[in-house]
């Protein structure tokens, strides 16, 4: 067994009474504070600081331009370039959702619908944004490329009801997404 014995460093008389160390510490903290006050904190520029520390003053300045590609905001449903709602209500997202935020009521597509051959779509698709933890599992599990986590993060409401995103709202956030696999086109 490789046991490395570490010896505590021997302290000189100056170090032993800590006073110089304390003074050094005060100086360090104070100089950092001054830097912060002058807006010269490390990373202040990258984080679009408002001038004090590295903080961005939220409602006036927003993150929108700085969101990374992989940002996980509000989950939303998308339609494709053919105007088809991609969700077929397979309920896998409802199943995988760790906080059980998703509720789907499936329904059959009526035979006079142009996409009747897809057979199934959600009659209701609710995501309770009070429950959603933005984990992205729904997007990962979706076999139809129908649900995506968008960059919307300002989800507000005055009561619990308002915080439930219904199907319309989800499609409104999601919008049209192009370049997805259109496997249903090949179906008879």
């Amino acid at each position: 067994m490789a046991v490395i014995k570490l010896q505590r460093p021997k302290l000189g008389p100056g170090e032993a009474i800590y006073l110089t160390a304390l003074a050094k510490g005060f100086f360090l903290t104070l100089s950092h504070a001054v830097k912060s006050l002058l807006g010269k904190s490390m990373g202040a520029k990258d984080l679009a600081s408002s001038g004090l520390g590295v903080t961005m003053q939220y409602p006036e300045q927003t993150w929108d331009d700085h969101l990374p590609e992989y940002y996980r905001g509000a989950p939303a449903l998308v339609t494709d370039e053919q105007g088809r709602e991609r969700c077929v209500s397979c309920q896998l997202c409802e199943f995988i959702c760790p906080p059980k935020a998703i509720r789907i009521i499936p329904a059959e597509i009526p035979s006079d619908d142009p996409w009747a051959k897809v057979e199934k779509r959600p009659a209701a698709f609710d995501i309770d944004m009070l429950r959603c933890i933005y984990c992205g599992m729904c997007e990962e599990v979706c076999p139809e490329q129908a649900i995506f986590l968008r960059k919307d993060y300002v989800i507000t409401g005055l009561n619990r009801k308002e915080m439930v995103h219904h199907k319309d709202k989800l499609y409104q956030i999601g919008g049209v997404r192009t370049g997805l696999v259109n496997k249903w086109n090949e179906l008879k």
């Binding site: 209500s89 397979c90 309920q91 199943f95 499936p106 329904a107 059959e108």
Partner: peptide
């Protein structure tokens, strides 16, 4: 039962 509910629920 068609399209009512997935059986795993």
């Amino acid at each position: 039962f068609r399209f009512h509910m997935r059986v795993w629920f």
